[in-house]
Write a protein that binds this DNA or RNA. Structure first.
Lengths: 110, 110
DNA sequence: ACTTATTATCGTAATATTGCGATGTAAAAG
DNA sequence: CTTTTACATCGCAATATTACGATAATAAGT
């Protein structure tokens, strides 16, 4: 037990859920918002901006990079992070496709 | 450790993340899709439709009810579940408000 | 070469989530 | 009143996530 039974769900359901999961942490929301607000890219500033340890920030960035929503470019001894606009828009569209399913009004819910 | 440091984030960030978290499981995605596809409400069918135990389905439904996206109405000895269209739309708008932030093209990300 | 700065990764402790059997509850059926 | 049906809740085991100190890796500065 304690293990999500991915095999009983469709690929689409698993993929959608895993993308929601990446956004399901306030630190990762905060990281994305910070990157967006600064017009240039970021690196260690996140450690100072949020009150989390460097290892923790690095771990969150790794998850964001895993789904491609964030990109990291090496610039000398630091790494510059930015939003991948293409992936950003793709994810928004994927979420909207889910939410745009017709919700019918039913008898039992007033 | 192991505890999310909610106090260092804004209410908006925590709220948004917690809503993403509810959708971050394929069983809950599947439950929502099933309720939407059947034009009437549901109850125990979910246990047969998905291959999960009754206790597990009940737990997932509880989380969906907690954010108000799903409503349960007692109908005799069973409970009829449906989508709360108002909350459904609110959450979609909340997500879009997040995604509609302007993503600027930056120097370090080609 | 040595030191410093920046980030990634490893290992680990604390906490959370997932899943399910067992049990409790309430309404319908007999 | 007893049994059955449909759900909810409790308690637990397995697994996942979060956070961080320690350490490694790489590049810049001295």
């Amino acid at each position: 037990m304690g293990l999500t039974k991915s095999e009983i769900f469709t690929d689409q359901q698993n993929k959608l859920a895993s993308r929601f999961k990446v956004l399901a942490h306030p630190a990762r929301i905060a990281i994305l918002q910070y990157i967006i607000n600064q017009d240039a890219c970021i690196c260690n500033d996140l450690v100072e901006e949020l009150g989390l340890a460097q290892a923790t920030i690095s771990q969150h960035l790794k998850e964001l990079k895993n789904i491609g929503i964030v990109q990291g470019t090496i610039e000398g001894k630091s790494v510059c992070y930015c939003i991948d606009e293409k992936v950003w828009n793709e994810i928004q569209e994927e979420f909207n496709a889910f939410f745009n399913q017709e919700v019918k009004v039913t008898k039992c819910c007033p």
